[in-house]
Design a binder for these strands. Structure first.
Lengths: 121, 121
DNA sequence: GCGAGACTCATACTAAAGTACCAAAAAGCT
DNA sequence: AGCTTTTTGGTACTTTAGTATGAGTCTCGC
């Protein structure tokens, strides 16, 4: 607005070429448009790319359970998760079972889907 | 550019108020900025949100196999997929096996991960 | 009309995944 | 220290998942 007023005064005063003023205003608003648009878009897309830590706590997921969940989403088997986290397969199974209960899932694939929907992965 | 020229002629001709013309040009370029920006952004972000049909063909995934893959990613069991697609569980198992081969996966969870990375889901 | 894939389904297994229940360390809190 | 939750692990089963193999049907292009 300030820029706009200045430009009109300049024209009325007659000490600037009209074409130049219009071009300047056009250019300015062109970039303002780009800037505002970029801002509004980034606020929308960031929502779908961050992990919701509060939700994890809300579900009562423990640290280990969450780690196991992450490995499941990476496609690992219980055996592989056990090796990666230095656990027995039994322990992994225990974690998985508790995990499924807390996420209201019947299967590990479903757990992954639900976790994704809750922005937990 | 055409719009720009017209506006300058209008001012020179003296049959329009300068403020109005400048405002119009500003508004026009404002939206042009938004438009162009949106276009350039969408070409970048669409890469991570659209399904790559070519990749599906490249992998040799058949229609049915792909449908089964989708249901797996929704967390369904073979039994549930069979019911949903009006198939026997045997058939679903066959599709899953072929699916895993084509995706180089050992498990359905891994298939989902790989499919996601390939922008197939 | 015929051959190639795709689709369907069955049987028979093997291998994972998941459940139930229990129990002992380990870690955190007050 | 005492209590609680987490973490760990075991045994014993049941249920899904996945593999192998064979075979009949369907569809589409040529």
């Amino acid at each position: 607005m300030l820029l706009f007023k200045l430009s009109t005064y300049a024209v009325v005063g007659g000490n600037l070429k009209i074409e130049l003023v219009i071009a300047a205003v056009a250019l300015a608003f062109f970039f303002i448009g780009i800037y505002l648009n970029k801002k509004s878009l980034s606020s929308k897309t960031n929502n779908t790319s961050e992990v919701d830590t509060d939700k994890i706590a809300e579900l009562g997921l423990s640290k280990r359970e969450y780690e196991v969940l992450q490995e499941i989403s990476r496609g690992l088997s219980n055996r592989e998760i056990a090796d990666k986290l230095y656990l027995s397969e039994s322990t992994v199974k225990t974690h998985v079972s508790n995990l499924l209960l807390k996420l209201n899932a019947q299967r590990r694939t479903q757990a992954v889907k639900i976790a994704r929907q809750l922005n937990i992965l």
